[in-house]
């Protein structure tokens, strides 16, 4: 499933389909969006997260990164007032302790390759290497997403592991 150079779009789509199937079963609200004309393929979840008794609105996406040939992760989080959180706010909300330097080397705010608006995007450079170290993965999206969820306070139910 995992090529030496990249992860094929077909592999991404089939993983996305089985991921969304599990999500539908457990009502986790991930939706698969695809547009052949724009070459945009992504799964998306809109949710609310609670941190230190405050409620935040969050949008998470996993999209197929055409340039790197890997799945990529992007997100935005808003306060209840509607203002967008800064990267530093997000680092403080992280479930694990991570140094500023480490965190900023993983996530940057940039124009989203698919949506064209500012999003926090994970750097795709190491993704392939990480996924290649688990060649027997039953679903690359689960493998990829579960790697980064501790960083951003997103809970991934255990059902996704039962593929």
């Amino acid at each position: 499933m995992i090529d030496h150079e990249f992860i094929s779009l077909e592999a991404f789509i089939s993983s996305a389909e089985s991921f969304v199937k599990i999500s539908d079963r457990i009502h986790d609200d991930w939706k698969f969006h695809r547009d052949y004309d724009k070459q945009s393929y992504y799964i998306k979840k809109d949710t609310f997260i609670k941190h230190a008794d405050e409620l935040f609105k969050a949008e998470f996406n996993i999209f197929y990164n055409l340039s790197y040939g890997v799945p990529s992760f992007s997100f935005n989080i808003w306060e209840s007032s509607g203002s967008l959180l800064s990267l530093e706010d997000i680092r403080r909300m992280s479930l694990i302790e991570i140094k500023e330097k480490d965190f900023y080397s993983v996530i940057t705010q940039q124009e989203h390759p698919v949506f064209g608006r500012p999003y926090f995007v994970m750097h795709p450079c190491q993704t392939l290497e990480l996924l290649a170290s688990l060649p027997d993965s039953k679903n690359i999206i689960v493998t990829f997403l579960s790697l980064i969820t501790p960083l951003i306070n997103l809970k991934l139910p255990l059902e996704y592991g039962l593929l």
Partner: peptide
Amino acid sequence: DEKLFLYVNQTFAPSPDQVIKNLYECF
């Protein structure tokens, strides 16, 4: 600076705060 990742089913990396008992029951 090296990161270590643990996987169940060779697919799913549970969150670090996940309790072993729960994982054992599921996987």
